[in-house]
Amino acid sequence: MNLFRLLGDMTHLLSIVVLLLKIRTVKSCAGISLKTQELYVIVFLTRYLDLFTKYYSVYNTAMKLVFLGTSIGIVWYMRYHKVVKQTYSKDEDTFKHYFLILLSIILALLIHRAFDVIEVLWTFSLYLEAVAILPQLVLLQKSRNIDTLTGDYVFLLGAYRALYILNWVYRFLMENHKFRWIPWISGLVQTALYADFFYYYIKSWKNREKLKLPA
């Protein structure tokens, strides 16, 4: 475990805390894409298949349970909680996210490091995570005003993968880890998709003005 990965995991955890804070305190999920949340549940389910078969550390197992539990909890809140589900921007969350799942499955079947169930599903989860934010970004562009917590959530979610890329550079240099195309490219694509958002988020933060994405 290196500092970049720890910072990355903490940033990821913080993004989920911010989202839960927003949903629980404001009792609203306005501006949050249910589709992105559902994609994240699939990402965690297919990535953490080895949860009960492989033990790396207490930290690793605990964090997997937290990520699985919170992502499923958030989808439950947005789908079934009597108050929260009314605030879901249903007719704006229109991204065809099933295509993202299909594309990721096809790509994982074509490009993977080993053709076994765990590896292919793990690869699938990397490809899917890279594009999982798209429905959320599209929804943000449609939202007239983006509330602070939603902006902070997306920023932290994007920042965590950028930190993971630094972690891979560190592991490559210091732990003479081999270069791994699949996580690297997926992570770079994922972070690149946030570039536009990062620009407007930082600009709004510097100018002390409301976050607004160009339509």
Binding site: M63, K64, F67, R113, W122, N167, H177
Partner: peptide, 10 residues
């Protein structure tokens, strides 16, 4: 895990 894999990550 094999050296090359990142399965020990989240």
């Amino acid at each position: 895990p094999p050296k090359g894999s990142f399965h020990d990550e989240l």
